[in-house]
Simulated scan of single mutants.
Amino acid sequence: MKPLHADICRYEVPFTAPVTVRGVLLATREGLLLRLKCDGATAYGEVAPLHGLHTESLDEAIQALTAFIPELSRFDLNNADDRRRLIGEAALPPSVATGIEMALVNLEAVATGSLPSFPDAFPPASNIPVNALLAGEPQAVLDRAAQRYAEGFRAFKLKVRKGQLDDAVACIRAFHEAFGDKAELRLDANQSLDFDEAVEFGKALPPDCITYIEEPMTDAALIPDFHAATGLPSALDESLWQRPALLDEIGPAPLGALVIKPNCIGGITKSLDLAAKARRMGLQAVFSSAFESSVSLGLYALLAAVSSPTPAASGLDTASFLASDLTEMPFAAPDGLADPAAAWRDSQRVKPEMIETIASWTL
């Protein structure tokens, strides 16, 4: 289904509390929606570079999106091959490529009244587990973990920060004492530690208390050495788009998972390709967001649901850090589980008062 009309809409949503991203303190989440229309069907895709994570700014994303939208008139069928060709030919920032592909995927599904479908995908799982995100002071971390566990969550991710490793070890020990093997704990160091710090930290942890640690070091090429020294598996996140060749160089032995952020990887198709590669390597494919709205989370939940017969717990708890959301029914994971089909349908029910149209095209 070829889009006939396009709008760029801007939004700004406050966080429930300031969020730190690679040392940058953010009070609000800003981004764009690409709204496409065709023969009564309306669909959305989200373009949301995150300050501190993406190299492109929001203004640069607007410029790239504005320059690309006229290319949509070249679309013939809006199928997977058409999308791969058109987006692949353009030199787009990753957040922009993802938002465009998301809008096109959603438009095809809305127009046909079906869920989005993807080549070589598994039948969608009826639900997917979601890991609860933990951050902040030790007591706040433990209080949130207890609350989320009571709600039904059984997978958790704790942010580990340089200069606060003693607090992190104390949190992990307390978590392990409270939940034992009843809950899965993942760590994320965001490439913040040097090799010696990472090894010292890893050796201070109780045995078998974590599933993996995301990006433990500033130099991800040292992950095999870190694994040899500590026995702890790592996960690649930022390295997947910063140094794509590194995955093959490291190999699966020291890894536990690939953490896939579509708006950093650069698209829906690229993310599913990476999930398929993770499966071939015997690794978990963990779909994750960069504090995007429920417009993105609904599709990401569906990607997780079709990427494996037994989807890994996804990093989609970020919606709980937004004070409000763009959709009538924000993404939720009651009992720690999300219904991907319902989440996708809800992702396209955007509240008009939450967005401001800043540019429009007839294609």
Score class of each variant (00 low, 15 high):
residue 59 D to F: 03
residue 304 A to Y: 03
residue 32 L to Y: 01
residue 97 A to H: 06
residue 192 S to I: 02
residue 232 L to M: 11
residue 75 F to R: 09
residue 345 R to D: 00
residue 144 R to C: 11
residue 229 A to K: 03
residue 270 K to N: 12
residue 361 W to H: 06
residue 121 A to H: 06
residue 109 A to Q: 00
residue 63 Q to W: 04
residue 63 Q to K: 13
residue 107 L to Y: 08
residue 80 A to V: 04
residue 286 V to L: 12
residue 363 L to K: 03
residue 35 R to H: 01
residue 323 A to Y: 02
residue 202 G to S: 12
residue 77 L to C: 14
residue 38 C to R: 13
residue 223 I to A: 10
residue 106 N to M: 06
residue 349 R to Y: 03
residue 27 A to V: 01
residue 234 S to E: 03
residue 149 Y to R: 12
residue 244 P to D: 02
residue 225 D to Q: 14
residue 83 R to W: 02
residue 17 A to V: 08
residue 327 T to K: 09
residue 155 A to D: 01
residue 263 N to S: 14
residue 173 R to F: 02
residue 37 K to T: 11
residue 118 F to P: 00
residue 117 S to F: 10
residue 102 M to N: 07
residue 227 H to Y: 15
residue 100 I to R: 14
residue 293 S to P: 09
residue 17 A to L: 12
residue 236 L to Q: 08
residue 72 L to F: 13
residue 91 A to Y: 14
residue 195 F to W: 03
residue 310 T to V: 13
residue 59 D to L: 07
residue 17 A to N: 08
residue 221 A to N: 06
residue 305 A to S: 13
residue 322 L to W: 05
residue 219 D to L: 09
residue 322 L to R: 08
residue 260 I to C: 08
residue 360 S to C: 09
residue 164 Q to P: 05
residue 111 A to S: 15
residue 333 A to K: 10
residue 340 P to Q: 03
residue 347 S to E: 05
residue 362 T to V: 11
residue 205 L to G: 05
residue 274 L to C: 08
residue 59 D to I: 00
residue 303 L to S: 04
residue 77 L to Q: 15
